[in-house]
């Protein structure tokens, strides 16, 4: 009996010590982690898509809630007009989920840029989607059509050599982004008006 009680007491003390330590560490790192995520994951993609904006898109962001989730939109001000937004999308790659950032020109309904934020593709092959801009640059200036596909599937974009699945994932993500954008366009425009 004594042994039983000792076991319980030791385990309880250890667990509560562990819980307390973790809570403390989490509290002190929470803000930093959020900032890190914004700057490292989405930051570079946003910056390259909205290159030349006169504001800081990471600061000027707004959320729109819709059926199935919330989307964050990063606003880029060009020539005094906040008419370009970047937002997130996702596709399935060879090694797992592919996070994408897609930029759209609200006035022309055209894609202004696509960037890969997170991925777990093979280094040197699928990772080219992120490191080699010549692939994602293909999307620039395209209209937001219903379906983007790689050329081997009868679509519009050249796949990265050796990484057809990754390329398909990116194309699928852009397709998704187009659909989301079309569904939320009225709300985006309303928010942008407020922004002025």
């Amino acid at each position: 009996m004594r042994e039983m009680i000792k076991m319980v007491v030791v385990l309880v003390i250890l667990s509560s010590f562990s819980g307390g330590l973790l809570a403390a560490v989490r509290n002190s790192t929470k803000d930093k982690i959020e900032l890190q995520q914004l700057t490292f994951v989405k930051g570079p993609a946003i910056k390259s898509i909205l290159d030349g904006a006169s504001n800081d898109p990471i600061v000027d962001r707004f959320n729109i809630e819709y059926e199935g989730g919330t989307a964050s939109f990063y606003v880029g001000v060009f020539d005094g007009q906040p008419d370009r937004v970047a937002f997130e999308s996702a596709g399935k790659g060879f090694g797992g989920d592919l996070g994408l950032m897609v930029g759209v020109d609200i006035k022309a309904d055209k894609i202004i840029g696509v960037g890969v934020t997170t991925h777990s593709e093979t280094p040197g092959i699928g990772s080219k989607a992120k490191t080699d801009p010549s692939f994602t640059r293909q999307f620039e200036g395209m209209d937001l059509i219903d379906s983007f596909q790689v050329k081997t599937d009868g679509g519009q974009v050249d796949a990265i050599s050796g990484a057809t699945i990754t390329s398909r994932g990116v194309a699928f993500g852009v397709t998704q982004a187009g659909a989301l954008y079309k569904a939320l366009k009225p709300q985006i425009e309303a928010k942008l008006k407020e922004f002025k």
Binding site: L21, T29, K32, I33, Q36
Partner: peptide
């Protein structure tokens, strides 16, 4: 978990 949180905060990439 401590390592994980600290790595997220300081060496995110």
């Amino acid at each position: 978990t401590v390592v994980e949180l600290v790595m997220q905060a300081f060496t995110y990439p």
